[in-house]
C-alpha cells in the first residue's frame, strides 16, 4: 500500500470518527487543535484504524501515555532530556524537531497530526 493510499484510508477513518468534512483532513492538521478530537476519540480512532488496516495497535503505541505524569520525564512543565529520549523512542512516527526546541508539555498534543498516524500505519503495515 502506498503512502497516498494509507492517507486516503486514514482520512476516511478520521472523517467518520470525528464527523469532519473531507477537506479538513490535511497531513499537517493536529487532531485536537484543528480537528477537535477529545480523549475518547483517540480510542475510537485506534479501534477504527485496527479495523480499517487489519492491524493490532497496543495501548500507548500510537498515542503514548504515562509520559507527562512521570516526574522523571517532566520538570517545570517541560520534558526533561530523559523525557525527550523516551518520547523519541516511543514516537518514531512523529516529527519532533520543532517540539525539541521548546518541549513544553502543553504543546505535546501538536505532535499528534494526521501525518503522524499515516507514518505509524505505514511503518506497521510494512512490517
Amino acid at each position: 500500500m502506498t503512502e497516498t493510499e494509507v492517507f486516503a484510508k486514514v482520512k476516511e477513518t478520521l472523517v467518520e470518527a470525528l464527523g469532519l468534512d473531507d477537506e479538513e483532513v490535511t497531513p499537517e492538521a493536529t487532531l485536537t487543535g484543528d480537528l477537535g478530537a477529545e480523549s475518547i476519540d483517540f480510542l475510537d480512532i485506534v479501534f477504527r484504524l485496527e479495523k480499517a488496516f487489519n492491524i493490532k495497535i497496543p495501548r500507548g503505541e500510537l498515542f503514548p501515555d504515562n509520559i507527562v505524569n512521570n516526574p522523571e520525564f517532566v520538570q517545570d512543565g517541560k520534558l526533561t532530556e530523559t523525557g525527550l529520549v523516551e518520547l523519541t523512542n516511543r514516537m518514531p512516527h512523529a516529527d519532533l524537531k520543532e517540539f525539541e526546541q521548546d518541549p513544553d508539555i502543553n504543546k505535546l498534543a501538536e505532535l499528534f497530526k494526521v501525518q503522524t498516524i499515516v507514518n505509524y500505519v505505514s511503518n506497521k503495515i510494512s512490517g
Partner: peptide
C-alpha cells in the same frame, strides 16, 4: 459488542 478492551468497548 464490536470490540472490547481493558479500557473501553464499542
Amino acid at each position: 459488542i464490536d470490540n472490547i478492551t481493558p479500557e473501553a468497548a464499542v
